[in-house]
Amino acid sequence: MNEFNESHDTGSVREFTVSDADAGPYALTEGPDGALWFTLVHRGAVARRDPDDGLVTVHPDGDGPTVITAGPDGALWFTEYRAHRIGRLTPEGDYASFAPRTPGGGPFGITAGPDGAMWFTLSSADRVGRVTVDGEVTEYPAPGAFPSALTTGPDGALWCTLNQGNAVGRLTTDGHGTAYPLPTEGAGPVGIAAGPDGALWFTEIGAGRIGRITVDGDITEYPLPDPAARPHAVTAGPDGALWFTEWGGGRVGRITVDGDITSYALSRTDCEPHGITAHDGALWCALETGSLARIEVRP
């Protein structure tokens, strides 16, 4: 499948159509091969965008592939929310999947852990799972309700958002969990990422805020200019700032570690930006309406 023509260009934001509007680009990551890999959640596929010519190759693998990330074994790992499985895809296109121990758990977030394994959330089962690169699965109780995104923290623990518990959770690699309640009721945290300042940064989709939590559990919240922005995913950028998607307003936001906020408009307010990642010196986000957006990082 070849990349379609560029559909939107404002100088700092460029958009590329990569699928039909109903395929649903959802999350994306830079692969071990230097390409941009993304999930097509409604089509049941994982796709690759070549960094040189923009060619898009679609792998029809997975049922409801959702969040995707690179693993320590040179493969791409992703959650299959509808199939309740964890998928693995090599850059060459070899696919395998693994079943968590808890059926119907609704795997969502996934990250490479500090121990050489992949860690994932089972949102519907309030559990966090671990799968080795050989497919051995272990599970632990989550420290709160509906664990969503997760990431490895600078302290060697796993940190996750507890969307329905209105908290951020910390889980050690031996399964000991701690929850840190958020100051704002109904915050509904979703995305989380390790920041360049030794803290964890997360989105509050229900409160229109970006949060910061230290490894000691101290929390700071930063209200966005648009309270209805519904921030979704967040990632560390190559410029020392945090970047996030504003699902409710069709924008990409940037926040410095000091709390200064900038926003970049996408082509449509209803383009539904979800996942975001740094790639090739820029920020890229997946628009569920069928495109990938590239946001230039300026000095």
Results as ranks from 00 to 15, higher is better:
Phe16His: 13
Asp280Phe: 02
Ala236Arg: 07
Val137Gly: 10
Ala99Asp: 13
Asp22Gln: 14
Pro91Leu: 03
Gly24Asn: 13
Thr245Leu: 04
Pro65Ser: 12
Ser7Tyr: 00
Asp260Gly: 01
Gly144Ala: 11
Asp218Ser: 13
Arg230Glu: 15
Ile261Cys: 10
Pro227Cys: 05
Phe108Tyr: 14
Arg127Met: 12
Leu150Trp: 00
Arg130Leu: 01
Asp63Pro: 00
Phe16Ile: 07
Phe78Asn: 10
Gly87Ser: 07
Leu283Thr: 04
Tyr81Pro: 00
Pro147Ile: 00
Asp52Tyr: 12
Val234Glu: 03
Pro238Gln: 04
Arg170Ser: 08
Arg101Tyr: 00
Gly250Leu: 01
Gly217Asp: 11
Pro72Ser: 15
Val67Arg: 14
Glu3Ile: 13
Thr138Asp: 13
Asp22Tyr: 10
Val215Glu: 12
Thr57Glu: 13
Leu287Glu: 15
Cys160Gln: 13
Asp20Lys: 14
Ser124Trp: 10
Thr220His: 13
Glu80Ala: 07
Ala293Lys: 04
Gly87Trp: 03
Pro143Phe: 05
Gly62Cys: 06
Trp247Asp: 07
Gly250Arg: 02
Ala193Glu: 09
His84Thr: 14
Val41Gln: 13
Tyr140Asp: 01
Gly275His: 06
Ala149Gly: 09
Gly24Pro: 11
Pro238Cys: 05
Gly186Cys: 04
Asn5Ser: 14
Cys271Gln: 03
His8Thr: 10
Ala187Arg: 00
Gly198Tyr: 04
Phe120Ile: 01
Pro25Ile: 10
Pro72Arg: 10
Pro103Glu: 12
Thr172Asp: 05
Thr69Gln: 11
Gly169Tyr: 04
Ser19Gln: 07
Thr245Ile: 07
Glu296Leu: 13
Ile86His: 03
Arg268Phe: 12
Gly191Asp: 11
Glu139Met: 08
Ser123Trp: 01
Arg254Lys: 13
Gly217Lys: 11
Pro72Tyr: 05
Gly248Pro: 06
Trp159Ala: 02
Phe98Arg: 04
Gly165Trp: 02
Asp280Glu: 15
Phe38Trp: 07
Glu80Thr: 01
Asp258Thr: 15
His59Phe: 15
Asn166Lys: 03
Ile261Glu: 02
